[in-house]
């Protein structure tokens, strides 16, 4: 492998990781808020949230990324930087999916847990944070793990707005050198990163295995 290719693959892997971590850090809490909005008794809140989720889950992420990058200019007369647009696009998309996972997890906690918290004098907030959420996290680890593995691969879509992530770098190197090897390297990079993701989730599940 040429040092130039090695260098650009390394820096694009860094970009990939940055997209991954920023999306995770932003969309995990945002997804929880979305889940609360979706579960609200107020239709005026829950229905718009549901529609937002429908759009995010019902249209291709690749189009959403283009939309976030190009549309603001025509509507508001400004544009995000490429990378910012990419993070915004990934975050609002993944928050919609995470919200569904949270919602399922929260629904699976028996009502008695809330009631036990309540009669012991915990506030609603304490009950949620101390009693409900830890159990929810244990329950949603497997689907969350899948979602994070998908996120690693989805970063390739950022190439559509010319963010220099692994796929874009590898495919342009491939066409420049008339070789498929850069694409093979890219595949290996995605695989190795997901190996780490899978490993981490497996570890977390083991950690939380101490109770039923």
């Amino acid at each position: 492998m040429s040092p130039v290719l090695l260098n650009s693959l390394a820096s694009s892997t860094l970009t990939l990781c940055l997209i991954f971590f920023l999306t995770a850090v932003l969309s995990l809490p945002l997804g929880l808020l979305v889940a609360f909005g979706r579960m609200s008794r107020f239709k005026l809140l829950s229905e718009p949230v549901r529609f937002y989720q429908l759009v995010m889950r019902g249209t291709p992420l690749i189009l959403q990324l283009m939309f976030v990058y190009f549309a603001p200019y025509y509507i508001f007369g400004f544009s995000f930087k490429r990378f910012t647009a990419c993070i915004v696009g990934f975050t609002i998309n993944y928050a919609a999916y995470f919200a569904e996972i949270y919602r399922g997890g929260i629904a699976s906690i028996p009502k008695g847990q809330y009631e036990a918290g309540r009669v012991l004098g915990f506030s609603q907030r304490q009950t949620f944070l101390r009693i409900i959420l830890p159990q929810v996290i244990k329950g949603i680890l497997p689907p969350m793990g899948s979602e994070f593995m998908t996120l690693v691969k989805d970063t390739a879509l950022a190439s559509v707005i010319a963010v220099p992530e692994v796929f874009r770098v590898a495919s342009s190197a491939a066409s420049r050198s008339f070789s498929t090897w850069p694409l093979v390297y890219a595949g290996v990079i995605y695989f190795l990163l997901n190996y780490i993701v899978e490993f981490s989730f497996h570890f977390a599940e083991k950690k939380l295995d101490y109770y039923r």
């Binding site: 008695g112 036990a116 159990q135």
Partner: peptide, 14 residues
């Protein structure tokens, strides 16, 4: 001032 004991215990499993 009030405590309640449930039929199904509702202990915190974690």
């Amino acid at each position: 001032m009030t405590g309640l004991v449930f039929q199904n215990f509702h202990l915190f499993p974690h």
